[in-house]
Structure formats: structure tokens, C-alpha cells
Simulated scan of single mutants.
Amino acid sequence: MQQIVDFILELDKLKGVTRKVKPTGLDRYENSAEHSWQIALLALSLAPYVHHAVDMDRVVALLLVHDIGEIDTGDTLAFAEHGWAERKAAERVAVERIFGLLPAPQAQRFLMLWQEFEDGVSAEARFAHACDRAMPVLLNLNNQGQSWRENGISHARVIARVGPPIQAGCPALWTHLEGRLLAARELGWFGA
């Protein structure tokens, strides 16, 4: 029991990992724990729009574990273009440490879920990736491109980063977002 308690208390640190986008109506940046919770609910809400059978419990589990490594590594702007291989290697070390607080069978299960998300091969992982990529877009569309403008993120860079995974995991969501992103470009909501 104490191993589980230690693990859960370690997860509390995810609340202190600051991201680059602000929650709707707030003058602070969201944290990674809030992000994980919100995309899990986004996935459950989008379930009727998935064109292939997915295990929604597995999708939610993938989304709840996917950013746990950020406890040690911090967050990287979703639209960053370089350093991903090094970042993912550091996150792997972090999740091995954090999941290692649990009894071995649970640690292995969570590590396998994290790796499934990273690999992005299963239908569940593709859908989870779509939700993960969509959430910063939805927040930016709701706050006039706040993090895109603050970080100099262009429309082309957003499309290149989020378009393929959202299209692959939830085409209906991409159809919806693509038009909204074009409108946002016309409104000047992107950086240079």
C-alpha cells in the first residue's frame, strides 16, 4: 500500500509542471495535470466520432500516463521543432523512475501504456494522440492564439505539427479544426 501512496504523492508534482497555454478565462498557464484530465474527457466526449473500434478505457489510461515524465523533464511547447529524440529519451528515464515506485506488476503495466502512447501504432494510441494534439489548438482558438503569438508559432507550423496526427486519429475533429485554423490565420492569431 505504501508504494501506491508514494507513487500517487509523486504524481502530485505534475500539478506544478507549467505549460505554455492559458486555461480559458484565467491569467495563468495551465499545468500538465490539468491537461491530462482535460484530454481524457475530450477523448470520452469524442468517442462517437471515432471511425474505428477503440477501447475507451485504454485511451483514457494512455492519456493519463502520457505526460508523467514531465515531472522530471518539464513541458516542451507542443509546437517545438527540434530536440524530440533527446526529450523522449529523458522522459523514458523519468517514467521508469516514477512508475518504479509502484509494485512491479503495476509499474510494468503503466510503462507499457506510456510506451504504447509513444509508439502511436494502436488505434487507441492514434486516437489519444489526436486528442493530445487538439487540446492546445482548442485552447489557442478560444483565447485568440495566446501561446502561438507569445511563442512566434506560425499557422504552417501548427498545421504541420497537429494536422497529421489529428487526421489519423479522429478525422472528424480535423475537419472541424482545419476550418477554424484558417479563420484564425485571417484574424492574425499566429506568430511570425
Rank of each mutant, 00 (worst) to 15 (best):
H51P: 14
V54E: 03
A43F: 01
L46S: 05
D55N: 10
K22V: 01
R28C: 00
D72N: 13
V54W: 03
A40P: 09
H51S: 13
H35R: 00
S32D: 06
A53N: 05
N31K: 03
P48D: 14
I39R: 03
A53T: 08
L62S: 09
M56F: 04
V50L: 11
P23I: 02
I71G: 00
V59L: 05
A47H: 14
L64Y: 05
E30G: 15
A53E: 11
V59Q: 01
L46W: 04
R28N: 00
R58W: 06
M56A: 05
D27K: 12
S45A: 13
I71M: 04
L46N: 02
L62M: 13
H51T: 12
I68N: 08
K22C: 08
K22G: 08
P23V: 02
M56N: 06
A61T: 02
G25C: 00
D27N: 15
H51C: 11
D27A: 11
Q38T: 14
Q38Y: 10
S32I: 10
L46T: 07
V60C: 03
V59C: 02
L26K: 15
D27P: 12
G69Y: 02
Y49G: 15
L62Q: 06
E34P: 08
H52S: 15
A33N: 07
A33P: 02
Y49W: 15
R58V: 04
A43M: 06
E30T: 13
H51G: 12
H66Y: 01
G69D: 02
D57T: 13
A40S: 05
A47D: 15
D57Y: 14
T73A: 02
P23F: 08
L44K: 14
S45L: 10
V59K: 01
I71H: 03
H52M: 15
L62A: 13
T73M: 03
S32P: 05
S45P: 10
V65T: 07
N31H: 04
Q38N: 13
Q38E: 12
H52R: 15
D57G: 14
D55P: 01
E34Q: 13
G25E: 04
P48Y: 09
L44C: 13
V50A: 14
P48L: 12
Y49R: 15
E34R: 09
Y29F: 12
L44Y: 09
S45W: 15
A33H: 12
H52N: 12
H52T: 11
G69C: 01
P48S: 11
V54M: 02
T73R: 02
K22A: 14
T73S: 00
W37Y: 07
V60R: 11
N31D: 04
L46R: 05
D55F: 04
S32E: 07
A47K: 15
L64E: 10
